[in-house]
């Protein structure tokens, strides 16, 4: 691309354009950009949860002692703090995901586009039902 070449000096028929390089910290300069980057960073905590789950399965497969060790590991204050932070990020992911997916889908009924809240609304409802169901399955006596 020509555009990456250093700007030549000004001449009458060759205007000298001023190009500004995007700052490395562009995502800190505006709240909207920061919110976007936080949304993307939520995926790191999603990955952390998966790692935790894999370690848990591994612990179970190795026997009761390994599993008890894993549960002690979860009680470590640093791990607990990390999990609290992760929880906020994954909830942030869920909320933004349902809101954005309503915009990514153009569902038409009778020639009219279904408004976004009619798509995100049922998603939020399903999220609550699924969460309640999982909690019941895991916590029932």
């Amino acid at each position: 691309m020509k555009s990456s070449v250093a700007t030549p000096p000004y001449t009458l028929n060759h205007p000298r354009w001023y190009r500004k390089r995007v700052s490395t910290y562009w995502w800190l300069l505006r709240w909207e950009y920061l919110r976007f980057v936080l949304r993307e960073i939520s995926s790191v905590f999603v990955a952390w949860f998966v790692v935790l789950t894999i370690v848990q399965i591994y612990a179970v497969s190795r026997g009761p002692d390994a599993y008890a060790e894993f549960q002690d590991f979860l009680k470590n204050p640093f791990v607990l703090a990390l999990n609290v932070i992760s929880f906020f990020f994954v909830v942030f992911h869920s909320i933004t995901w349902f809101n954005l997916s309503a915009r990514a889908m153009a569902i038409r009924i009778g020639g009219k586009r279904v408004p976004g809240f009619l798509i995100s609304g049922p998603n939020f409802a399903a999220w609550l039902v699924i969460s309640a169901l999982i909690a019941w399955l895991l916590l029932r006596e």
């Binding site: 909207e32 950009y33 976007f36 993307e40 954005l100 915009r103 990514a104 889908m105 153009a106």
Partner: peptide, 26 residues
């Protein structure tokens, strides 16, 4: 496109380009 969504927010004509891009991805 990473669906920042800013294009849609600033659009003075409510075109929703971000929506258009995601819909085309689908």
């Amino acid at each position: 496109c990473t669906f920042v969504g800013e294009c849609t927010r600033v659009c003075p004509k409510h075109v929703d380009p971000a929506g258009a891009i995601q819909q085309y991805k689908l």
